[in-house]
């Protein structure tokens, strides 16, 4: 069965004066219709760049240097700008971190919603407004008729993110890429927005790629997960398996760092050190300087990204042995 979205060996580089820096180093994953996936990792792991690469909107000097992004049988990385615009917002939408910034301050909510629709469909303003109204109701904005004529500054942060979601949903896209959609919001609103997003994706059968550093959020919302470190996926699989039976030491570190597993008042666990910058990624496994179980092989050889069980678990670590039933590799 072919997938809705198939990212194959995607590579993104940034052309700088010093030479090209590899930000995304050959990652692969796929997404089925209506499937929700989490992309997890620290700042700088390349999560957001991956999101932008899917819709071919990496800002200069970045560019896609290899691999394919197959969407409905078409390679998005090779499409013309014109054809790509037809996909963006129409088939694949994106939600950003800060709802304060993503809405244009001088246009009303209604105008911004209608504009999105009109960019992709030949539709009259009143028809577009009717759809906008319906979407605002879906994201539970009270008295949407009145709200359509208001400007972004008249809304609270949570409300704005709801509107951003409504705009993302307005063309009934197949996939929504949500780049840290709740980071700028306070905790209670975060939960509400995540619930709303999950519920909408379920009811509309929309695929979701949730980019976040918060494993807690991912484990509640998504069905599968890919953990990124220094431009690569180091562990992927069904969310429930990855969270409960973590293989890669980096993912283990992330899970230990969650405050939920500790006594109140206890010191939080953290992964020692910092993510390497793109200019000096260590040889071998990129995680080796911070890894608690690092051995000699980790410093010379890059670990392959291989299946470790009969499910869809994949891990890139020398220290993780495949399930014995898999046979020798």
């Amino acid at each position: 069965m072919s997938h809705l979205l198939e990212v194959n060996d995607l590579e993104v580089k940034f052309g700088l004066r010093l030479g090209d820096l590899t930000a995304i180093n050959g990652i692969s994953f796929n997404l089925n219709k209506g499937e929700r996936m989490g992309l997890v990792g620290e700042s700088g792991a390349g999560k957001s760049v991956t999101g932008f690469a899917i819709i071919n909107l990496i800002s200069k000097p970045g560019f896609i240097s290899g691999g394919r992004v197959m969407f409905n049988g078409r390679d998005l990385a090779a499409l013309s700008e014109e054809a790509m615009r037809e996909i963006r917002g129409n088939h694949i939408s994106m939600i950003f971190q800060d709802p304060m910034m993503t809405l244009n301050p001088v246009l009303t909510i209604g105008t911004q919603m209608v504009e999105t629709l009109q960019a992709h469909r030949s539709i009259t303003r009143s028809e577009a407004e009717a759809i906008a109204l319906e979407k605002l109701k879906k994201v539970q904005i009270p008295s949407p008729e009145k709200r359509l004529a208001q400007y972004p500054h008249e809304f609270s942060g949570g409300m704005r993110q709801r509107i951003v979601i409504a705009i993302a949903l307005i063309t009934d896209p197949e996939i929504i890429i949500a780049d840290e959609p709740t980071t700028a919001l306070d905790v209670t609103i975060q939960a509400e927005i995540m619930d709303l997003l999950q519920q909408l994706c379920e009811s509309e059968d929309t695929g979701l790629i949730l980019i976040t550093h918060d494993l807690g959020v991912v484990s509640q919302v998504t069905e599968k997960i890919a953990v990124m470190y220094a431009g690569k996926i180091v562990e992927s699989g069904p969310t429930e398996r990855v969270v409960n039976d973590t293989k890669h030491p980096y993912t283990q570190g992330l899970i230990k760092a969650l405050p939920g597993s500790l006594q109140p008042g206890a010191r939080l666990n953290q992964i020692q050190g910092m993510m390497p910058t793109l200019t000096d990624i260590p040889p071998g496994c990129a995680f080796n300087p911070r890894c608690p179980i690092c051995e000699a092989i980790c410093r010379d050889q890059e670990p392959p990204f291989i299946p470790v069980d009969h499910l869809t678990r994949m891990v890139a670590c020398h220290m993780v042995k495949p399930d014995p039933s898999m046979g020798t590799r």
Binding site: L57, S93, F96, N104, H120
Partner: peptide, 19 residues
């Protein structure tokens, strides 16, 4: 970011510029 968001929506550059 709103300019980025407008690009993500799929608007063309003239529309983003002028509107």
């Amino acid at each position: 970011e709103y300019v980025e968001a407008a690009r993500v929506i799929g608007l063309n550059r003239w529309r983003i510029m002028f509107r």
